[in-house]
Computed example of a mutant assay.
Amino acid sequence: MIGTQDPQSDPVVRLAAVTKLYGGAKNRVTALDNVSIDLHRGTFTAVMGPSGSGKSTFLHCAAGLDKPTSGTVHLDGVDLGPLKERPLTRFRRERIGFIFQAFNLMPSLTVVDNVTLPLRLAGTRPKKAQVNEVLEQVGLSGKRGARPGELSGGQQQRVAIARALVTRPAVIFGDEPTGALDTRTAADVLALLRQAVVVAGQTIVMVTHDPVAASHADRVVFLADGRFVGTLERPTVEQVTDHMTRMGSWSDRFATNEAEDGVRR
């Protein structure tokens, strides 16, 4: 079990012995292999690993977008396993925020309408003060009536961040949130996420391949072949890069050994 900086508090996300298998008996792939981790409130965690290491599967299982083959996922004290699709969708809408690489904004809607979409889908009337607060937080107070096509990539991602923040979720999951941005814009977006953690006590879990992005987190956890293989606290870019380099070599050797043993992953 991988813990976090505050073992005394209840975790907002807990994965216990989570395994996720794909395929049948003859072509089975183990995307996650008995993964356990606690993620606590007010922390920023980056998840890294080589291509095919299980990063996306981890995010999907942790966020209730996919069900594990075995093991349990608790989010904000709720066991996601027994939830049927409709209550699970409602739970995600109310308690989870998402930030994606591709922004996923509605092109025909204004900034305000994109930001408040999760609230309106949940049948909640957006509060003007709440909307104004998140727009100011992400620096878009002057772009309320603009549509995504009138915004830069960085501004569009700020809209996505505001949309994730407006419901005041238990946790925000980011899937390569800076992957489509230039270096300077990415730094601005990461600073916003860092601010959300430090100032607002938000919990963020971010999958990334970028050591610079990962260095903004409180902690980096590393996946290889569906297993956690390391962690760094208060990471630097150099530490993350070095760890990824060494882990890549380890991962290649591990895959070779597994192939020699006749184990298919």
Rank of each mutant, 00 (worst) to 15 (best):
G248R: 09
V29C: 06
R234Q: 14
V207S: 03
G52L: 06
G24E: 03
D113I: 00
L192M: 01
D225T: 11
V207F: 05
W250N: 06
S141W: 07
V18C: 13
A200T: 09
Q130K: 10
R147M: 07
G179M: 11
L192A: 00
V171H: 11
L39Y: 08
V199C: 02
T69D: 08
R158F: 04
M48A: 13
L140F: 12
V112A: 15
R234V: 06
V131H: 09
T43H: 09
K55S: 03
I37V: 12
G262T: 13
D188I: 04
G81F: 04
V166L: 11
M48L: 15
I204C: 04
A129I: 06
T231I: 15
D66C: 13
V47H: 07
F98Q: 01
M106T: 13
A186V: 08
T110S: 14
G23Y: 02
A160W: 15
P107L: 01
L193I: 15
G24W: 00
N34A: 12
G248F: 02
A164F: 04
G49T: 14
P118V: 00
A217R: 01
I37Q: 08
V197A: 02
D33F: 12
V237K: 06
V12A: 02
R253N: 12
K127W: 01
R90M: 12
G23E: 02
V78L: 15
R125G: 12
M206Q: 08
M206S: 05
Y22A: 13
H209K: 00
K128N: 15
S9F: 14
V221S: 05
V111W: 01
T89D: 11
A259Q: 07
W250K: 15
Q202N: 11
R265T: 08
D242R: 12
